[in-house]
Every structure is written in C-alpha cells, then in structure tokens.
Design a protein around this nucleic acid. Structure first.
Lengths: 339, 339
DNA sequence: GTTGACATTTACAGCGCTATAGATTAGCGT
DNA sequence: ACGCTAATCTATAGCGCTGTAAATGTCAAC
C-alpha cells in the first residue's frame, strides 16, 4: 500500500488508469452507483485504496453546481444564543448532508449587506441569516439570488422566508406565570438606548398586554432603561430603580444576560431571589442552568427554530421560488429557581 | 441596468463578450491587476455592472487550488470556551483573507478521525483542530496531507504544530495567588471519572506542585472527584466534600463550569464566597463576567492562542513542511469577586 | 444462433475561472 | 522613420469531476 501524500495529489484519472477503466466507472464506484458489477467494484476499490485517492470536493462542486454548504450569518458566534443556534443548525444541516459556514457580521451593517448581496456566490447553496442592523426594506431591495431564510425579529420582508417565535405572546406567557405566582409589581429589564432592533419592543408589548389583561395599571417606572447591552449597563439600570425607591416583586428580562445583571444587582441591594423578587430571563441559554440560583427563562424552541429554518431553506434550494413563508415556532418557559 | 438574477448566472465569458474583450482582461479588472489601461478598466467595469456579474468562487478555487478557507474542528461550538475561540480564530482568519468552516466533532472519535484523515480534501487549505478524544499516536499515524495545527492539551504529536498555554504553570500561578491571599486549605474541583484528556491532569499537577513548593502537605481529600462534566456532577462533588466535613478555604476549578458548580454548592451549604471560601475558575469565559459574584478565573490569552495557531497554519499553507512547532502562549489571572 | 431488453462501461464535453505563452500596441531614443 | 523594450491584451489549455449519449456486454427467450 503506497499512500503518496507528498507529491501532487491523486486524481480520479490516476485511479482510472491504474484500474484500467474509465473515469466515469471510478466515479460510479465512489458514489456507490448501483449498476456496477461486483468484480469491477472490487478492482476499482483496490486501486482507490492503493493510491489513497480522495475526491476533490471543489472540482465536484464546480461540476455539479451544488456545494453542500450553507452559510450561517449571525452577529457574534460567542453569544450564547447564537452559539447554541449554530450548534443546532449545524447538527440539522449535517443530518441532511450539508455543512455550515459561520459568518460573523459583528453587528456591522456593511457585513450584513455583504451577506445579502450574494457574497457567497457559488460558495454556498443557501444562507440562514440572523440580521441585527439591516432593515426589512433593504433586504427586500437587495434580494439575493441565493436561497435565504431569515431568523430573529429584526427584519421581516414579505418576499423572504422567516422563522421566529411569537415574542409578544411569549412575553405575555412569562408575565402571566409571574402573575399566577402572586407577583403584581413586575418590572421589565430593559429597553436599551439606541437599540434599533424589534425584539425588545415586541417583548415589552407582550409584557404590557399581559399586565393590562390582568387589570393592572402600567407603571412606566417599572419599564427600566439601560444605556447599553453589557451586564454592567443592566446592573446599573436595575440598581438605580431600586435606589429610586420603585417597588417591584418580579423582573422580566429581555435576555438572559440582563437576567444575570438583575441577579447581581438584586444581590447587591440585599434582595433575595426569588423570595423578594422573581427573575425571569429570556433565551434559556446555558448560563441559565449554570447561574445560582438557576435562572428561569423563556425558552424558544431552538431545535425547532433550527429545523424549520433549515427545512424552508432546503425547500428553496430545491427550487421553490414562491412568496416568503413566515413560520412561528413554539416557546415554553423553563422554570428553575428564580421564580 | 439589467440585473438578471433569474436566468442562468452571468459568467465571466458573458462579461467578456459584452465588453468585447478577452476573458483574461475581465479577470484582470476583477482582480485589480495593475497593468490594465484606465479606458479598458472602465469599459469592462461597466459591462460587469450592467450584467451584475459576480465571480463563481468554486470555479476560482478549482483553478487556483486555493480555497481561502480553513476548517476549525472543535468538540462543541456552544461551549463557551470554544465559541470564544471560534470568534477569535474567525476574526484572525478574516483579517488574513480566510474564512472558517466550523466542524463540530461532538466528542465523537470517528468524527475526530475524519478530521485528521483529509476529510476536507480540497475544501479547505488548512485545519485548526482541538481534539478531545483522539490521541497523539493516532494523529501522528493518520498524519494528513492538509496543513494542520492542534489546540489544547489532549494530543501533542511531535510531527504536528501545536499551541497551548502552560497548564501546569497556570495552575501553580492560581494556587500561589490563593496562597498569597492567605488561603491554606485549597481544594481542586475536580478530577472526572472517565476523563481521558490530559488537561485535568496537568492542572492537578500544577496545583500539587504549588502546594508542595509552599511547604504544605497534600491532602488527598481536597482533590475532589466528579462523576461527570455536568454542573450537577460538580455540585454533587463539592457538596459531598462539605458534608463529609473536609475543611477548605479555597477551590481551584478545572474550568468555569465547575466554578459555577462550586458557587452553587457553596451557596447551598451556607458558605460565603469569598469570605469563607475563594473560588477560582479556569478559561475566563463570558460566564465568569456574568455570574454573581463575578468569577475570578485563570485566563488563557485566547487572542494569542488564535493568532498563534493561525500564524503556524498560514506558514504551513505557504509550504513550510518541517517538524512540528510547539508554542506556549501566555496566560493571566482575571481577578474578580470570588477571590 | 439470433434477437431484444437491459445492465455495464466508455468517451468526452462541459462546469467557470486562472494562468501561461504569445500577439499586439505603445513609448522612446536615435 | 526604425528598432527595441515594456506595457497591454488575447487565445486557450488546464483545474478534477460529473453527466450525457453512445458503445459494448450479458442473458433469456426464441
């Protein structure tokens, strides 16, 4: 057995020559094509083994026009939520013979535009994109030739497929759970200065709807404001509410990070969780399981999100070219120790 | 302006025909080749714009033999440490004109073998691989044709490039810091049943060295044992130590996850952190910044890790074929509220 | 021994782009 | 004008694989 890895790579042609057959026959063996005689299969296979042949994927792609890859464009791979989505989408794609190319947009508008503008032309068969900055109009305008499915609530152009959970409904569910547990002064942490995404808004809306539906009055002082997305910003937002004397017995947080901020701020203020104040996070990321006390969190069904997004994309990759489909995926509430 | 996206894609040839020039000239314009007259450049560019031409990356790759992509093979993308490494490596690669393909091995031996065996033949120019299950010997034996750089301490074959921090030294540094703060009964959380990786062992070694160097006796009861890698396992390990009456005033944890477990177990046992017990994590992942109290953690220089790994890989991709280089990257200790 | 009807196998034209070698044009000194 | 070098541009042969159409084999039935 000669496995020559040093010299120029072994080509399909080399195998064909050694086995004394045509290239197509080798190709057939490689692809387990059914109409190949057993003898031929054996002969070719041993030539393959002898030379250590391995198909060149790039050439295959050029010939077939299929790359077997999809791009996953997300703001930051090291944010828990996106990392988890990357995992699930990667697994789902893998099950269907696709692999994923992770593209970080790092919240940069230009990077997001590049994603929409067939940036990956001929590199991937489709794109799953969670936009953060770019808006609906622009996506519709730059409408790419490559199959595209959108995630998140930032942008929802009519002509593009889109998957999300019902944020408003989920927020309502969360508040109702808190209400059932006897909490009546529920704060929302937090609207963020300069936040141009839709998520917070939708969640806040659900929060308000639930309160009104329960016959409670909306107290604007309970809708906290944060100067930014960092944990320190969140801590400050909650701490200053406590200092200013606003009373509350529960906090619905726009994401798990702010929930961690709430835990810290409440701890520093000497308030016990959940005895004095319940805390409910959002996204049910790993950090919710790791924190002390373990964080209750609104839990989008991430696997369903991944599976649905992939299914829609696969549909497009197989030629569907109709109007945008907008799918709502289930959510639940992971109850742990903070409520 | 006709931007035809529906029909078959626009090819280089189409642009050449429209502009009335050769394909190579169009290619030259696309690549900003210097020896192209301004007039020609303008003419070709407008043909490109008119047709909405966009190069097919796959074809380019086949022709050049370079893919501009590197694979990052890691156990799980949704583990904080790996997600952060993915981010840094992605950024570093991006700076050098490369993109990354994330490959999750999900701790599966076969998947790891596949990574080593030119799985990505012709798909990527190189591979950065953080093995978890596969061992040194096997990597050496399966030595791939594709440039490869290893991360982590699981495997260190002589013939392959490798980047890591000095784990033993880092553990010693951590223990010394605890010692300087007056702690004398330092526990190690934890050795894990069935753990076949080297990391824990190296860290435990450093822990013991530091203790001995300080003239303290090694108390085997302080080296806790966990049944698995989950947070619950970690909590149980520490809780049972507390119950069995072993006294300690600090815990060095093998990773941030176990540190979170320590925080929870200590909280449940009514011990205060850091007043009664200091807790020092490992990896300095985001969760360390988010927890309450914020976790002190041994901090590998992840950017340096990423940059070094990429540099070694680039070197190989550019033809270096010498012996394996083994680089040690700096670490520090991020001191927060638990020490 | 032939004939169909299939089962196998082959030959080769692309896939879209790059790169080499050669053709053409331009610039300049004399 | 002429010759010569340098700057531009063109023609075309691959890169390694797949898919189509055609060629060849095989086997049962006549």
């Amino acid at each position: 057995m000669t496995t020559d890895r040093s010299a120029g790579r072994v080509r399909l042609k080399d195998v064909a020559d050694l086995a004394g057959v045509s290239m197509k026959t080798v190709s057939n063996v490689v692809h387990d094509y059914e109409h190949v005689s057993a003898a031929m299969r054996t002969k070719v296979q041993s030539a393959i083994d002898e030379l250590g042949y391995r198909p060149n994927l790039t050439a295959r792609r050029l010939a077939t026009g299929k790359t077997g890859m999809i791009a996953l464009a997300i703001p930051e791979i090291d944010q828990f939520y996106f990392a988890e989505m990357a995992r699930y989408i990667g697994e789902e794609a893998g099950r269907h013979g696709y692999r994923i190319l992770v593209e970080q947009t790092l919240n940069d508008v230009e990077a997001e535009r590049a994603v929409i503008r067939d940036r990956e032309e001929g590199l991937v068969d489709g794109v799953i994109f969670h936009p953060a900055r770019i808006d609906t109009l622009e996506i519709a305008r730059l409408r790419p030739g490559t199959p595209l499915v959108l995630l998140g609530e930032a942008a929802r152009p009519l002509n593009t497929d889109h998957v999300m959970i019902d944020n408003t409904r989920a927020a309502r569910d969360g508040v109702e759970m808190l209400l059932r547990a006897g909490r009546t002064r529920i704060a929302f942490l937090a609207t963020v200065r300069g936040d141009i995404t839709e998520s917070t808004h939708l969640r806040l809306l659900g929060y308000q709807e639930a309160l009104l539906a329960a016959g409670l009055e909306l107290d604007p002082r309970l809708v906290l404001q944060s100067d930014g997305f960092s944990i320190e910003d969140g801590v400050r937002a909650l701490a200053s509410a406590v200092e200013s004397g606003v009373a509350f017995d529960a906090v619905l947080c726009r994401d798990d990070l702010f929930a961690m901020a709430a835990l810290r701020a409440l701890g520093q203020a000497g308030l016990r969780v959940p005895a004095d104040v319940s805390v409910l996070g959002w996204d049910d990321t790993a950090v919710a399981r790791y924190s002390t006390p373990a964080l209750s969190s609104i839990s989008p069904d991430k696997r369903a999100l991944a599976a649905t997004a992939f299914a829609l994309l696969e549909d497009r990759m197989q030629g569907y070219d109709g109007i945008g489909r907008h799918e709502i995926v289930p959510h639940s509430i992971a109850e742990r120790a903070t409520t």
